[in-house]
Amino acid sequence: MTKSEFYEKLEFILELESHTINGSETLQDLEGWDSLAKLSFIAMGDVEFSTIVPAKALLACKSVVDLIKLFDGKII
């Protein structure tokens, strides 16, 4: 998956307009990054990458860049 495709997935989860996310955001900046969004993100990781993101690792993420790192090079 490319980074822009990943941003689109994130925008869909957060119910944001297209091209709102460019990768420089902190998660605190993102409106709607809450417990329900985290569940949707974990589900997306399972479907798209067959990766079950550990909840603790997700909780430690501070930025969109950190989220990308969770998938270990599968987002280019």
Partner: peptide, 22 residues
């Protein structure tokens, strides 16, 4: 987590429950 409760209330970490389920 932003929710208001005390220690005699149920606490649930939805993300942990979901990853355990998967």
């Amino acid at each position: 987590d932003g929710n208001v409760r005390c220690d005699e209330d149920v606490y649930m970490d939805g993300a942990e429950i979901f990853t355990f389920t998967l």
